[in-house]
Design a protein around this nucleic acid. Structure first.
Length: 504
RNA sequence: GGCGCUAUCGUCUAGGGGUUAGGACGGAAGAUUCUCAAUCUUCAAACCCGGGUUCGAUUCCCGGUAGCGCUACCA
């Protein structure tokens, strides 16, 4: 058996918007396959849709891919043997092949106007028949057709589809067959001279020696046209792998209205790239055995296989992504998490830009305290509210606080607690705070929830939250720091609470 | 309408001609904790329907149904 040629795959996005998770999974599977097979991963920009393509989207695309760690070996930014890698720079190539196909009788000029074609289509719909091209211009004499074009008549170029069934192999779906009638002669170059997607993609993939076309299954029905094109052009037909669509919770194609769908949005939410990569890998693929959930990129490269990709569509589960993110957040390097978390706290003006060593240390501890409570970094400011936003009036009037505050035991605890805090002139440490609680406990004869909940409400405004041992030092130290928003000390909180309580 | 693809817990999935149909997210309960989160333990939860093939089908085949995609001088 001959040595199989080196694996070459490509990811070919259109720079018409932000990188979407559906495309991202395609990019990921291409990358995993290339890296596992020690092949080449090619990045090609499909910007033939001049109207919608924008340079800034291309830049963003590359940035998002880099952020995810999905690198490429050839592409518009780094060149390569088979460039250029931007379709707008390849127009001459497309033109050349199209003319060749006409000369060889494998394609022909079509003078049908869009109006004519539209009429035929409407009729087909009315008759419930298949909407296929009549083949009218196929029967034109080539020399005559050429003459008409030279005389300035607008002509599109159509590929002649051979009159036999077209089949191809798909790694995910097996053998796929289409009757030639259902394909019908497709236009490959518009009358404006602009080549169409289904044509350029074949020229590019063939010229770039792509061996495996891994892409979304919205292209499955286009594949017979492309296979016919490969054959007309005399190029070997690559292997295909069509990935199922990613759907939203309502089983419709995942889109903006389902919430975050772009890589940029997830990044802004504080989702780690390894979590997104891990989640996306599990969407439509599972390792044999199917009991493992977390994989590093290296492990994915080792385990991945296109044969194990599931053909059925998958619903994007935000919860599971966030759960995975939490796992990665917990195990990530502390300094990295702090560096990533800081911008969220700064944006909420809880921290300033300039921080001295003491403040940095304090911020680090704050983040240590908060991160276990979130599954996305953008939830941090909300979680920090108990430190930064103490609202005595709200604490006193909150529905779920009232019963406790109005109970006899609650009142006793609060007054005993307040009295002791007031008599303490210095700040509190975790130990001295605990000592006070113990005194209150002895004086009031309360314990457990009865004892802790009222104190919690006085200090944080809520009856739930992290350990006092960690919260108290943070509050006390924070109150002495020149933060953009003053953190109230224990004494200040108690004083504010008492005032609000008395007035209620 | 035509053509194509798909179909296992609510969701992602493993599995496969005979299984207590496995794991994970989410849900419920319990343990722990002053509380919440986390963590741990336990529980509930599925083979779309109808025919065939077969001793036996959730698994193989065919039909139906449903969902999705393509049906463009969009990509």
């Amino acid at each position: 058996m001959a040595a199989s040629p080196k694996v070459r795959v490509r990811f070919a996005p259109s720079p018409t918007g932000l990188l979407h998770v559906g495309n991202t999974r395609t990019a990921l599977f291409n990358w995993l396959f290339a890296r596992q097979k020690k092949g080449a991963n090619v990045l090609r920009i499909e910007d033939t849709d001049v109207e919608r393509s924008e340079a800034r989207f291309e830049t963003q695309l590359l940035d998002d891919l880099r952020w995810l760690g999905l690198d490429w070996d050839e592409g518009p930014d780094k060149g390569g043997e088979y460039g250029p890698y931007r379709q707008s720079d390849r127009m001459e190539i497309y033109r050349g092949y199209a003319e060749r196909l006409i000369e060889e009788g494998k394609a022909y000029l079509c003078f049908c106007t869009p109006e004519e074609l539209e009429r035929e289509r409407q009729q087909a719909i009315a008759e419930h028949g298949p909407q296929i091209y009549s083949g009218k211009c196929r029967r034109l004499d080539p020399a005559e057709a050429r003459r008409r074009r030279t005389q300035g008549e607008a002509a599109a170029i159509r590929l002649k589809i051979p009159e036999h069934p077209i089949h191809f192999h798909d790694i995910v779906r097996g053998e796929v067959t289409f009757e030639h009638e259902s394909v019908s002669d497709p236009i490959i170059v518009r009358s404006s001279g602009m080549p169409v997607y289904n044509y350029v993609v074949v020229v590019d993939d063939a010229e770039m020696k792509i061996t495996h076309v891994i892409r979304g299954d919205d292209h499955l029905s286009n594949t017979p046209k492309q296979v016919a094109l490969y054959e007309a052009l005399g190029f070997p037909v690559p292997e295909f792998a069509h990935l199922s669509t990613i759907l939203g919770p309502d089983r419709e194609r995942l889109s903006k209205r389902h919430g975050a769908t772009s890589v940029a949005q997830f990044r802004d939410m504080g989702v780690l790239p390894e979590a997104l990569v891990n989640y996306l890998a599990l969407l439509g693929w599972a390792p044999s055995g199917g009991t493992r959930e977390t994989f590093t990129p290296q492990e994915l490269i080792r385990e991945f296989s296109l044969e194990r990709v599931t053909p059925s569509p998958a619903i994007f589960d935000f919860e599971k992504l966030y759960w995975l993110n939490r796992q990665y957040l917990k195990s990530a390097d502390r300094q990295r998490v702090i560096a990533l978390a800081l911008p969220y706290l700064r944006k909420a003006t809880l921290l300033g830009e300039d921080m001295d060593a003491e403040m940095q240390q304090w911020a680090g501890k704050l983040i240590d305290l908060l991160v276990p409570y979130v599954d996305r970094l953008d939830q941090l400011p909300d979680r920090a509210a108990m430190i930064f936003r103490y609202d005595a009036v709200a604490a006193v009037s909150a529905e779920d606080n009232r019963p406790l505050l109005e109970s006899e035991a609650g009142g006793k605890v609060i007054s005993a607690f307040a009295k002791r805090v007031a008599s303490q002139s210095d700040g509190f440490s975790a130990e001295s705070f605990k000592a006070i609680i113990n005194e209150v406990k002895a004086e009031t004869g309360t314990k457990g929830k009865e004892l802790f909940h009222p104190i919690r409400i006085v200090i944080t405004g809520s009856h739930s939250g992290p350990d006092f041992d960690r919260v108290i030092p943070l509050i006390e130290t924070g109150s002495r720091l020149p933060l953009p928003q003053h953190v109230l000390s224990v004494r200040e909180r108690v004083a504010a609470f008492e005032q609000a309580f008395a007035q209620s």
